[in-house]
């Protein structure tokens, strides 16, 4: 694919994003926002899992930190600008990551996964128990959603689903672009190196814990942005979003879409958003379905859809060559 077609494709995609709410209506516009939030969440987690080789069963806590950060700030501070509220969500998640990082960066893969599960459960319990801060099971809802704009010059109402859609697309798109860019930098090389052979990275003169720590902050912070947008979108955040099932969701999306690639998790998020629309209509056994999908993917399609696509492609090319 040459540069020109690439730009044209991106242009087409941009136009699609712009017309989407006008064509598909409010319901599907909201579905799309849900999808992009899930996509950002998964891509962030995949920075750890797919690129650096670290599995976490607790990243819902960073999503939650972002969401609660934004929600609490908006509920308590009058006239807080929209972007600042998102930034507060982002910083809450980064802060949580900063606290945990020194503890977790030296752990082995298994211990890392387990500790996150434990901390995830802890955060869930705290969110339920610390009622006066988090609102317990009811969560925090009905906080004011600020308009987007410059006071006195212009102001866009964010309670309007279409307006919010454009706002969410801008923030999430920008964050996704940053994450994609990071994978292309020398630091991105380093991440993949840690995944492939951490010992050698150490013997090439890179400091492992510090490097992992930076990835950890980036992943955590971006989960926080996803959470922050979620809180604004739903105008509600409750302890449920911190539940361990919510930590499994991105892992599943990553596995189904393709753990080895940047775009796999986005594809996975898309598939699950669609499946979610379908399964909730026909069955209550969501966990059962998720469990079976996880087993099937690990057993038969370890590299997910993208991996399966590459497999088919090489097979096709071989047959063509023969």
């Amino acid at each position: 694919m040459n540069k020109k077609t690439k730009w044209i494709l991106w242009g087409v995609f941009l136009i699609f994003l712009i017309v989407y709410p006008l064509v598909f209506g409010i319901y599907y516009t909201n579905v799309f926002v849900t999808f992009t939030i899930a996509a950002l969440f998964s891509v962030s987690v995949n920075m750890l899992l797919g690129f650096t080789g670290f599995l976490s069963f607790g990243h819902a806590m960073f999503f939650g930190a972002g969401a609660y950060g934004t929600a609490i700030a908006l509920a308590h501070i009058k006239g807080l600008p929209l972007l600042i509220s998102v930034f507060i969500g982002f910083m809450s998640a980064v802060l949580l990551a900063l606290i945990l990082a020194p503890l977790v960066v030296r752990l082995s893969v298994t211990a890392f996964a387990m500790i996150h599960m434990a901390f995830g459960m802890l955060m869930y319990t705290l969110a339920l128990k610390l009622r006066n801060i988090t609102g317990g099971e009811d969560g925090i809802g009905g906080f004011p959603i600020p308009s987007f704009g410059v006071p006195g010059i212009f102001s866009i109402d964010m309670t309007d689903p279409t307006n919010f859609y454009y706002f969410a697309m801008a923030i999430i798109g920008f964050t996704l672009w940053i994450l994609w860019f990071i994978t292309k930098t020398p630091f991105g090389c380093l991440m993949v190196g840690i995944r492939d052979n951490a010992k050698r990275i150490d013997y090439l003169g890179f400091k492992l814990p510090q490097t992992k720590g930076v990835v950890y902050l980036i992943a955590g912070g971006c989960c926080g942005i996803a959470g922050s947008i979620f809180a604004l979108f739903q105008n509600l955040i409750s302890a449920y979003e911190l539940h361990i099932m919510h930590s499994f969701t991105p892992i599943m999306m990553i596995m189904v879409g393709g753990v080895g690639s940047y775009f796999g998790p986005i594809l996975g998020a898309g598939i699950f958003t669609m499946l979610g629309e379908l399964t909730t209509r026909y069955t209550e056994r969501v966990e059962l379905v998720i469990g079976l999908i996880l087993i099937a993917v690990i057993m038969y399609f370890p590299l997910g859809c993208i991996g399966f696509y590459h497999y088919l492609k090489t097979k096709y090319l071989k047959r063509k060559a023969a």
């Binding site: 892992i251 966990e287 469990g291 087993i295 690990i298």
Partner: peptide, 8 residues
């Protein structure tokens, strides 16, 4: 991940 699937 596989054992998580079994657990679920």
């Amino acid at each position: 991940i596989l054992t998580v699937g079994v657990a679920l």
